[in-house]
Each structure stands twice: as structure tokens, then as C-alpha cells.
Design a protein around this nucleic acid. Structure first.
Length: 859
RNA sequence: GCCGGCGUGGCGGAAUGGUAGACGCGGAGCACUCAAAAUGCUUUGUCCGAAAGGACGUGUGGGUUCGAGUCCCACCGCCGGCACCA
């Protein structure tokens, strides 16, 4: 025992009392179920506030601390505003990490998952989040994934779930296929391995059927979702407007259709390209001379070995093989040599393009690499607006092109394709038209000739949902000997996962479920024939595409969700989560919502009315990661500072959507502020029922200003400013107590009560403690916010500014009711104003009584 | 390459076209204390000046306006998304 410590106060004092306070109130909330959503008889307006549910990967981290703080602030806010608030929590508990952890330890993924859930649950409770715990759900429970299977069957029935053999993204590390959205820069979104292409038969959801609605409905969300997310979804869907054009292929009965956004340049097509890995290429090559077939086979083999990463590098030289076959241009009838080249993608458009090298950079690069002709059909030097310029005509009435200008910049020599605006040349009766008009005219002509039509294409691909892994929802389909595939009858759902015990879960390219003999072999309940279950499980993004609805009837075994409850609560009013889901989860949830709408189960078409994207919590400018060893541990910080200081520090650190560097988060500053506020609540010396009316006027004004401003601050998610404003009021109250009206003044009670009720959003334990110290019954979380008194918002005197040429020269204390003339006169007589004007001439005087006068002077 | 966003003190950040830098961190000083911690108070954009006061100041350059961090144009820099999508 050191003699130094005997007389010293432990520095941990602040946080130990904070820990006592938080334990006290967490117990109270749990025992009283303070934050349950009201039932059917609750007449208050409803708010559905939701944070993206967590994956139970271990303990909570600082990202969770931020995410669930924000949703808690919003939920608490609406309770204070007299709303019936639903703020539920669940776990996105299927997925690869559980399986990988299980493989490493030879354990059951179920155990790992549910242990982590318990740990996270404890963390959330210690953090003081006002969840309605009675609606907790886990997507890995059969009671939940039952309805994933139901959803799958519904989509199947509507033709929206189908199987096809197609090249897919394959992660060689996780040994499973991936959806397009899960491939980031050619790598597996989860493990970072280079993705390869494989041709497999897989289940898809037909999200492309909804492409137009998914794109167009984004306009409804303008201003309610972050602009960035809307833009990302628009790009992802990537609608292109143009035309389909039919090309006859010599020696083939059926014409081949290509998609183009530039039907105006049809006359400039000089060759034709097919994707080497398309069926069309194989077919065309099959009828080519033997040496061409060999060359093509070699080329195809090379292409298939190329990863997406290499394939996507734009400066990669163009490669291809001439197939010695010809397509015929539907306008003009020119013969176009057919090439196979990997710059054309098999799964976009029709897997074939007409090449117009003069006006498309990729085609030009290819033409220059293989010495193919380049024909300019748009004069991009011609003006595109105003009157059509005089064009010299030859004796046949065909415009003579200004040869010199074109030569100087001919794409074949410059290597730069002319993709800009201009006027058509060398294009028959399109000549002289602008690009835009020529596109319209070309489509008309193609339609009339029956060789083309207006068309749209999307970057978006169908959603591949099969996964060759164990820990997910079994796909409820049965495979018959004759190759037919039939659904499991809906009344036999759920198809439960077998026990993991005895199964080899290690990745091997096919689902571990296939080896669960007694599970995979079953009998078709319709025909009685022996059948095999589909061994794949669903992408976990299926689970999360509708979970927000399950919170409305979390225990029902009658339906996925009760449509009546959905009508009451949904859609989600405020949804909060990281921007990493800008496409994946949010696009899928929007898609499934539209399907459910089409099924008549819900009456809305967008699941999340408003969306908040929080930034990341980083450390010293770098993303935190286990491998870098720069983790800030949630539990450690919580132990050190307490939940309220953590919450306040985070909320105050900066705008919601910005990244927060933990190095800049001042938890000690937060602690200091919270104890100042708490101390005030103990100092208040007036009785609980004191009338505020006669309290200190300046403090009352400060209180009511905050009452007036706070709701907008919360609704605009300016939580950092709300904390700053609370600090201001605490400071003002401190001053009033110490050097002003004193602790017994009614205004002090009014101010401290206001702080307590508003602070509940940020630091709920401290707020409850204050509320109790002030002589009130808990819970402060259910107290309605006081209205600002407009009479208290107007001041008797205010500081007006006098400017000369926009520069402030004097501050004037004036009556709030001062007239424009009085204010101007006062300003004119001010010595500093007179000096600033000097002998210059006043040209104009702007008066905005009572706040501002500006003299515009000259000379 | 295409699309989007952002540039404000030493730092995190405030600011319906109307006093730029609220609030906090950090710094400096003071009070209380034997001393420290804690707490409270004062001060803190840069430059000139002893002060009064003045000049400059929101990435750069222009513009609109009585007045611009805020609106418009161009440029520079950083960040994010997409990318051989015809």
C-alpha cells in the first residue's frame, strides 16, 4: 500500500460512478421493458427506426458503437416527440465466417454463431441501446429461414427464380460462386481472392425484370437517401438506351442481333465482333476453315484463363481472331468481317457488336491493332446548334465533306475516336443531321425496314443466389432422375439443415450438404419417387432482403409477416447503416419489396423511406483491421469511459456521414461535459413544481432557443451540433448558478430539466440519473419534449452590425423593434462608421432592421 | 476514361446569401491546494501595433451581389463509385 495513494483520489472516479449509474438504469429498463413498441391499441403515430442488423462475427466493434448509437438517437427522439416507436434488433446469422471458424476448430457453426450472438447482445445492453428485445430474430433459426424458402417458392412460381447454365464468378478460396455484386475489382468481396469464371448451372433471381422500376423509383428517394447511394445504384443498374439491329450472317439462316447506343453510326460499321466465350462465337467458328477453328480454340482457351482483373485493365492491348466469316450491314449491304475478341462480353447485350472504329474508342483500338478500315460518318467539327451550315453538294446532291479538316484529325491516324457531337456525313439520307436527330431517324428507318428497333440494355445482371456452402438456407427444390426439378410443397417447409456433425464442411467446390446422404436423399411427396434435395444454400443476402418485415410478426408460424402489421408499421421510416451496402443489400431489399408489392402483400414499393449512411470509425487516418493490429476494442473503451461518454464522444466527433478518427474522439471531454450536467442536476435548489415564469430571463431564453432548434437538428441528423448546443446550455446554466441568479432560480430547474430530457438521446444513463436527482419518476426516455415558448425567443435588444462595403465596422446594441430609419441614423452617427466612410460617396444603403446596415461607398 | 462528393484555425468541426471560426480538443495564464488531481475562471485565426486600432483570411483565379465559406464559370488537389457494358 503506497503512501501516495492513501490520500489521493483515484482518477477512475468519474468512470466508476458512471458505471454504477449505467448498471442501475440498464437494470431498470430491462425490468420495466421501457422501450417496447406499443401494440394495436396504441393511438400514437408510428415510427419504424432500424439499424442494419449485425452479423455475429464476434464482439461488437466501434463501427457497431456508431451505427447503433445513431439509430438509438433517432428512436429515442421520436419517443420524446410522442410517437409509438419500433426499434428492433436481430442477427444476420447465416454466413461464411461461422463456417470457416467451425472448420478451423472442428466445431459446429451453430455453436460459434449463437455464442457470438450472446456476446453481442450483452454488448448492446451495456451500451444502453433502447431496443425492443421481444422481437429479436436470428436468420439461422428454422423459424426464420422457413420464410426464406417460402419466398424462394413464391419467386419460383412467378418465374422469378430460375436455373441456368452460365459462366459464373467463382471464388477459388471460398469454393463457392458469387453474385456480380460480391465481386469487387475482380476479387471476392469477402476474402479478396481473385475470382475466376466457371460455367455452372445455378439458381438466379430475375432482378433484371425489375431493372426499370429499380432505376426509376430511385427518383422517389431523392433527398431522402444519400445522393451518393442513389448515384451508385443508378450506375450499377446502368440503363443504356439505343437500338437492336439485325445483321444477316453469310451462311447462317437466322440473323444476329446486336445492341448499340449509336444506331446513327451504322454506316460507319467496318467489322463485326463476337464474344469468344459466347455460344454464337462457337457456332460461327464451327463452320469456319480448320485452321481458323484451331486458332479460335486456342484464343478461347487463353481468354478463359484470363482473370477479370487482367481483363478489366483498360490499357491492355486488344486481341482477337478473324473467323473468316462475314456479316452484312443492313444499311448499305457492306460485308463486314467477323472477329472474335474478348473486349466484347458474352453476357451483355447479345454478346456481339457492330464495330464503328471511327466513333468508338475500343473499336478503334482494335481496328488499329489489326489494320481494319476506319470510316468517319460524323463530322465532329461541324457546329451542332443553330442553323444547319451550308454544305457543298456534288452533282448528285451528296454533301462534299470538308476533307482537309477531317484528314488532320482522322481517327485512324490520331488513334482518338470521335465520340462527340457533330453532323452526319457518308451516311446516305442521314447526312446533315445532328447526332441526336440521326439516332432517332436511324431507329425509325430500321423499324420500317424490319431490321431493327429501339432497345434498352442494363449493366445489372440477374442475381445468382446459389452457394456451395453449408451454413445457409437450403434451397427447397427436389431433383428427379429424369432431370426435372420440382419445388418442395409449401406446407412441408421448412427444409431444415441437417446437423453439421459428421459432415466435412471444408470447401471443395460442391456443397457439403450433398454428402449428407440421409438428408439429400428423400422422397418426392407428390409422386413418391426417390429424389435428391438441392444441395446448395441461398446467398445470405436473401435473408436480409426482407428481414425488416419479419420484425413485425417475429414469432408467426402462419406467415413471413402479417400484412396487417406491415400496413401499420412499414416501410421503415429511418434506416441506418454503412455505405458498403449501397448496392448489395439495399438493391436486393428494394427488389424483394417490389416483388412482395406485386404479390399484393404490402402497399409500398420502397422498403426504406429515408436512409442514413454513417461514416467509418478509423484510427490515425487508417481503416482499423485485425491484421493491421490497429483495433480499438469496443469493450475496452466501454470499460474505460462508460457507455455515455463513449456515445457522447462519438456523437460529438463530427457529421454522421463522415469518417471519425478515434484519435480525434475526446471521450474525456465527453466525460467532463456529462459530469458538469449531472452535477447541475444535484445543485438545483427549487422545488419540483416551481413555476418557471419568473426565472432568469437570459437563461430561459437560452433554454427555449434550444427547445426550438433541437428537433430540426435531430431530423437533419446534426447530432454533433445538438451536443454542442447542449454544452452551451450547460455552460450558461453553470454561469447562472455561480455568478447570476443562483441555484434556486426557477430558470435553472427549467434549463437542467431540458438538458436531462434532451441528453437522453445521447447519454441516456446520465439523463435518467439527472431526472431522478431533479425529483422526477423514471423514465426520462418517455417524457415528451416541452414546446418552445415563442414569447421567450424574441429578445428586447440585439446586436446589429454596421457594414461599409460589406465589412463590419461597428456593433450596435439596439432595440429589437428598431425601425429601418432609426437604425440607419444610428449607424450613420457611429464614429467608426464615419471614419470608415471618410470622404467617400455613399451610393447605396441597405438596411435589414434590426440586424444589419450596409453602406455601399465609392471613391 | 465516365459519374459523384469534398477542400474553413495546431486538430475535430460550426455557420436559412448578412458579425467566419459556434462547441470541443490541444496550448497559455490564473484561482482553490502544503502539493497534486479534480473543479472553476481568463485567453487562444494570421500579421502589424505598447495600446487604441488596422490589414489579411474559408484550395486557386474570375464572375454575380450592397454583401459570397455559401450562388455561377474555369482550374488545382483529395476521396468514393463504376469501368473493354457496345
Amino acid at each position: 500500500m503506497s503512501e501516495f495513494s492513501a490520500s489521493s483520489t483515484e482518477p477512475a472516479d468519474e468512470s466508476t460512478s458512471a458505471h454504477a449509474i449505467q448498471a442501475k438504469w440498464q437494470k431498470y429498463w430491462a425490468e420495466n421493458e421501457t422501450f417496447l413498441a406499443g401494440g394495436d391499441d396504441d393511438r400514437r403515430p408510428r415510427k419504424f427506426v432500424l439499424a442494419m442488423f449485425p452479423y455475429p462475427s464476434g464482439d461488437l466493434h466501434m463501427g457497431h458503437a456508431e451505427n447503433y448509437l445513431y439509430s438509438d438517437i433517432v428512436a429515442r427522439f421520436w419517443r420524446h416527440r410522442g410517437h409509438n416507436v419500433l426499434n428492433p434488433i436481430g442477427w444476420d446469422s447465416f454466413g461464411l465466417p461461422a463456417e470457416n471458424a467451425a472448420i478451423r476448430r472442428g466445431a459446429d457453426p451453430r455453436e460459434w454463431t449463437y455464442q457470438n450472438i450472446e456476446q453481442q447482445k450483452t454488448g448492446f445492453k451495456a451500451y444502453g441501446v433502447s431496443f425492443d428485445w421481444t422481437r429479436e430474430l436470428h436468420t439461422s433459426d428454422p423459424e426464420y429461414y422457413h420464410w426464406n424458402q417460402w419466398l424462394f417458392l413464391q419467386l419460383h412460381e412467378r418465374g422469378l427464380a430460375y436455373r441456368k447454365k452460365s459462366p459464373v464468378n467463382w471464388c477459388p478460396n471460398d469454393q463457392t460462386v458469387l453474385a456480380n455484386e460480391q465481386v469487387v475489382d475482380g476479387r471476392c468481396e469477402r476474402c479478396g481472392a481473385e475470382v475466376v469464371k466457371k460455367k455452372l448451372t445455378q439458381w438466379y433471381f430475375r432482378i433484371t425484370d425489375y431493372a426499370d422500376r429499380l432505376l426509376d423509383d430511385l427518383n422517389q428517394l431523392e433527398g431522402r437517401w444519400p445522393h451518393k447511394v442513389l448515384q451508385m445504384q443508378r450506375n450499377w443498374i446502368g440503363r443504356s438506351i439505343g437500338a437492336d439491329v439485325d445483321f444477316r450472317i453469310e451462311g447462317r439462316d437466322e440473323p444476329v442481333t446486336v445492341f448499340t447506343t449509336r444506331p446513327d453510326t451504322l454506316h460507319g460499321a467496318t467489322f463485326f465482333v463476337v464474344a469468344p466465350d459466347s455460344d454464337l462465337a462457337a457456332e460461327i467458328a464451327a463452320d469456319a476453315p480448320a485452321e481458323v477453328q484451331t486458332a479460335f480454340a486456342e484464343y478461347l482457351a487463353t481468354v478463359q484463363k484470363t482473370t477479370d482483373i487482367d481483363r478489366q485493365s483498360t490499357d491492355r492491348p486488344k486481341t482477337g481472331v478473324f473467323l473468316e466469316r462475314y456479316a452484312v450491314n443492313p444499311v448499305g449491304g457492306e460485308r463486314l468481317p467477323i472477329w472474335a475478341a474478348d473486349y466484347v462480353l458474352a453476357d451483355y447485350g447479345h454478346g456481339a457488336v457492330m464495330a464503328v472504329p471511327a466513333h468508338d474508342q475500343r473499336d478503334l483500338d482494335f481496328a488499329r491493332a489489326f489494320d481494319l478500315p476506319v470510316k468517319v460518318v460524323v463530322d465532329t467539327t461541324a457546329p451542332i446548334t443553330g442553323v444547319i451550315p451550308v454544305i457543298d453538294l456534288d452533282e448528285d446532291g451528296v454533301p462534299i465533306e470538308p476533307v482537309e479538316t477531317l484528314d488532320a484529325q482522322h481517327p485512324a491516324s490520331t488513334g482518338i475516336a470521335l465520340s462527340g457531337e457533330g453532323r452526319m456525313i457518308n451516311s446516305g439520307d442521314l447526312n446533315g443531321l445532328s447526332k441526336r436527330n440521326a439516332i432517332a431517324r436511324a431507329i425509325e428507318q430500321l423499324t420500317a425496314a424490319g431490321t431493327g428497333r429501339a432497345a434498352k440494355n442494363y449493366r445489372l445482371r440477374d442475381w445468382l443466389i446459389s452457394r456451395q456452402r453449408f451454413w445457409g438456407t437450403p434451397i427447397p427444390m427436389l431433383h428427379h432422375d429424369d432431370g426435372t426439378v420440382t419445388p418442395v410443397p409449401v406446407e412441408q417447409l421448412p427444409v431444415k439443415l441437417p446437423a453439421a456433425a459428421g459432415l466435412d464442411l471444408s470447401p471443395k467446390g460442391s456443397s457439403p450438404l450433398g454428402a449428407a446422404e440421409s438428408w439429400v436423399r428423400t422422397v418426392d411427396p407428390v409422386s413418391g419417387d426417390p429424389v435428391l434435395r438441392d444441395p446448395d444454400t441461398m446467398d445470405t443476402f436473401v435473408d436480409s432482403s426482407w428481414y425488416f418485415l419479419r420484425f413485425l410478426s417475429p414469432n408467426s408460424d402462419q406467415f413471413a409477416f402479417d400484412p396487417a402489421e406491415a400496413a401499420r408499421w412499414a416501410p421503415v421510416d429511418t434506416y441506418i447503416g454503412g455505405v458498403e451496402h449501397a448496392i448489395l443489400h439495399l438493391l436486393y431489399a428494394r427488389f424483394i419489396t417490389k416483388v412482395l408489392f406485386d404479390m399484393g402483400l404490402i402497399d409500398f414499393t420502397e422498403p426504406f423511406s429515408s436512409l442514413i449512411n454513417q461514416g467509418m470509425v478509423i484510427l490515425n487516418g487508417a481503416k482499423m483491421s485485425k491484421s493491421k493490429g490497429n483495433l480499438v476494442l469496443f469493450q475496452e473503451e466501454l470499460d474505460k469511459y462508460g457507455a455515455d461518454a463513449l456515445r457522447t464522444g462519438l456523437a460529438f466527433a463530427g457529421p454522421v456521414e463522415d469518417d471519425k478518427d478515434w484519435a480525434d474522439v475526446s471521450t474525456t471531454g465527453a466525460q467532463k461535459f456529462l459530469s458538469r450536467a449531472l452535477r447541475l442536476s444535484h445543485e438545483v435548489a427549487s422545488p419540483v413544481d416551481v413555476v418557471f415564469k419568473d426565472g432568469d430571463a437570459a437563461l430561459r431564453r437560452g433554454t427555449h432557443r434550444l427547445l426550438a432548434d433541437a428537433p430540426a437538428l435531430v431530423e437533419q441528423t446534426k447530432f454533433n451540433v445538438l451536443v454542442a448546443r447542449l454544452m452551451e446550455l450547460v455552460n450558461l446554466t453553470r454561469k447562472t448558478v455561480d455568478t447570476g441568479a443562483g441555484a434556486g432560480d426557477p430558470a435553472v430547474r427549467e434549463a437542467v430539466e431540458t438538458v436531462a430530457v434532451m441528453l437522453d438521446l445521447i447519454a441516456p444513463h446520465t439523463a435518467e440519473e439527472m431526472w431522478e436527482a431533479l425529483g422526477h419518476e423514471p423514465s426520462v426516455g418517455l417524457v415528451t419534449w416541452r414546446q418552445a415558448d415563442p414569447a421567450l425567443l424574441v429578445e428586447d435588444t440585439i446586436t446589429a452590425v454596421a457594414q461599409v462595403n460589406g465589412k463590419v465596422r461597428a456593433q450596435l446594441e439596439v432595440s429589437a423593434k428598431i425601425t429601418a430609419d432609426e437604425l440607419e441614423a444610428l449607424a450613420r452617427s457611429d464614429e467608426r462608421v464615419i471614419r470608415a466612410i471618410g470622404d467617400k460617396e455613399i451610393v447605396k444603403v441597405i438596411v435589414r432592421a434590426p440586424k444589419l446596415v450596409n453602406f455601399a461607398v465609392k471613391g
